[in-house]
């Protein structure tokens, strides 16, 4: 597999009234050509900040990339000047934002907005740009693109707007698409449409997607690989099956068991994760999840765990993986949603 982006030991901080907020603390991951990497986490886990750092879209006045590299095609994006980054943005890496209501300019026709990117990054005549825009709109499933190209964003529904945003993002055939909660603002039936569309386009153009989301259902539907973030760190990363059927980190267990299952017995209570996420300006010592972790050891409250490789693709940051730690069985019901499959994996 061809690696197209690799992030190494990224640290990002914000400064506010209350002091420094360490939003991202030592995040590393790779993205391969044509695959979808999902970054899952709750609000404040640093997943959106990571995405914005890749695009260099963080507010200059109060944020700083303290450390780390983002390598893309032989370049280190962290050190790139703004002008060089602008060339990259939209043509090689694009982004789809959460809210289709605010990510389009309300005073411009959607045709102009899609064409803008085309004109900036590709030299083409007005006529070819126009036909290409119509093609793009058709591609993302907008009916009568020839007519709707001259309409304004308010004449589109939320789902249709998100399609336009995707068309804008894909206008120059980028190698990588960063989708920051692309379906969170949409209804379930529309979400299904958009996810289907993204998968279809990915297959067609071999685009790598970094999908930022909090919804494990969306992850299961879209991703090949998953990174689970908590308090600015990647707690566990692995292939889709590894994370869903053989999770090793208590936080991943907690996330999976706090979701209700459509097919599960409803008389049983859900198993939530107790407590609330930590305050990023006053992080606890040791593992940031330790205060909420029911398996926490003494060591967890004092030392940060290192990364343990469970398999070539599966990495976890947890003291339970240390050989001195007591053996803990993961809670029932996780990965057991399909028992046949589960035993098959375990046996192999």
């Amino acid at each position: 597999m061809e690696k197209i982006l690799s992030v190494e030991n990224l640290h990002v901080s914000f400064y506010s009234d209350g002091g420094e907020i360490a939003a991202v603390r030592g995040v590393s991951f790779d993205v391969n050509k044509g695959e979808t990497l999902a970054i899952v986490g709750e609000s404040g886990s640093g997943k959106s900040v990571t995405a914005k750092t890749l695009m260099k879209l963080l507010p200059k006045q109060n944020s700083i990339i303290k450390q780390g590299d983002v390598k893309y095609g032989g370049k280190n994006l962290v050190q790139l000047t703004n002008r060089d980054m602008e060339k990259l943005r939209g043509s090689e890496i694009s982004m789809v934002f959460q809210d289709p209501m605010t990510s389009l300019n309300p005073t411009m026709t959607i045709g102009k907005q899609v064409m803008e990117g085309l004109k900036r990054h590709r030299t083409m005549s007005k006529k070819t740009a126009y036909t290409r825009t119509v093609e793009l709109l058709e591609l993302v499933g907008i009916p009568d693109p020839g007519e709707r190209i001259n309409q304004y964003p308010h004449q589109f529904s939320g789902g249709m707007r998100q399609r336009v945003v995707i068309a804008m993002a894909l206008a120059c055939n980028p190698k990588m698409l960063i989708a920051d909660e692309p379906t969170t603002a949409l209804d379930v039936t529309i979400q299904a449409q958009i996810l289907e569309l993204m998968k279809e386009l990915q297959k067609k153009f071999q685009t790598a997607i970094i999908l930022i989301t909090h919804d494990l259902g969306v992850v299961a539907n879209m991703a090949q690989r998953v990174a689970v973030m908590y308090a600015g760190e990647i707690m566990e990363s692995g292939t889709l099956d590894e994370i869903f059927y053989q999770p090793k980190h208590p936080y991943t267990w907690g996330l999976l068991s706090s979701m209700p299952k459509l097919h599960a017995d409803r008389s049983l209570p859900l198993t939530p994760i107790p407590g609330t996420p930590p305050d990023l300006s006053h992080l606890p010592e040791g593992c940031p999840f330790a205060p909420r972790c029911q398996y926490a050891l003494k060591v967890c409250h004092q030392y940060e765990p290192g990364k343990t490789k469970v398999s070539t693709t599966h990495t976890v940051s947890c003291w339970l993986e240390d050989e001195r730690a007591p053996k803990v069985k993961k809670p029932e019901g996780i990965g057991g949603m399909q028992r046949g499959r589960q035993s098959k994996i375990a046996g192999s």
Partner: peptide, 15 residues
């Protein structure tokens, strides 16, 4: 029916 089938489930095999 459509609503139920549109809900993404946190289970890759089912999906």
């Amino acid at each position: 029916k459509a609503l139920l089938s549109a809900v993404p489930l946190p289970d890759p095999d089912l999906e």
